[in-house]
């Protein structure tokens, strides 16, 4: 098989690795672009959720390909990185969202649905009577 000589194969494998690397970088770039041009906190949260799943995933595939096909070694840590990311990413996103709701960050006007967490009457007011542990808070100018 003359067409399958070593130099040609190496180039093909490197091209495959490069493809995954560039695809991962592109996905990560698009999600960071989303951080800039999406309009409220809740929308911007979708960006990192994506970068950590597909973006990092593709880069890790490229890593695995490189080490297995070109360096001829296998590092199982790459698999562990994926697993840890998949376990931790949704939890941090959930906590961020919870904090945003707790702080009642405004959502974009085009958002449909009004969760009770964001309704106006729940907004915490400055207390009339000072808090026992912070006597100054009632008389602030």
């Amino acid at each position: 098989m003359a067409w399958l000589d070593k130099a040609w194969l190496d180039t093909a494998l490197e091209a495959l690795t490069a493809f995954f690397l560039v695809a991962g970088a592109l996905i990560t770039f698009i999600s960071s672009f989303g951080m800039v041009h999406l309009r409220d906190f809740y929308l911007r949260m979708h960006g990192p959720a994506k970068a950590t799943t597909l973006g990092v995933g593709l880069i890790l595939v490229a890593c695995t390909l490189y080490f297995v096909l070109i360096e001829r070694t296998f590092h199982i840590q790459l698999l562990l990185v994926t697993i840890f990311l998949l376990i931790t990413a949704p939890i941090s996103a959930h906590l961020l969202a919870k904090v945003a709701l707790h702080q009642k960050l405004p959502s974009d006007t085009s958002t449909t649905g009004a969760p009770s967490e964001l309704r106006e009457e729940d907004v915490a007011q400055e207390p009339d009577t000072p808090h026992p542990e912070d006597p100054g808070s009632g008389q602030r100018p």
């Binding site: 809740y42 994506k50 799943t53 597909l54 998949l86 969202a97 709701l101 967490e117």
Partner: peptide
């Protein structure tokens, strides 16, 4: 829900 993009479980 959070991992599949486009949806995030908020609370």
């Amino acid at each position: 829900i959070s991992l599949t993009p486009g949806t995030i479980s908020a609370n």
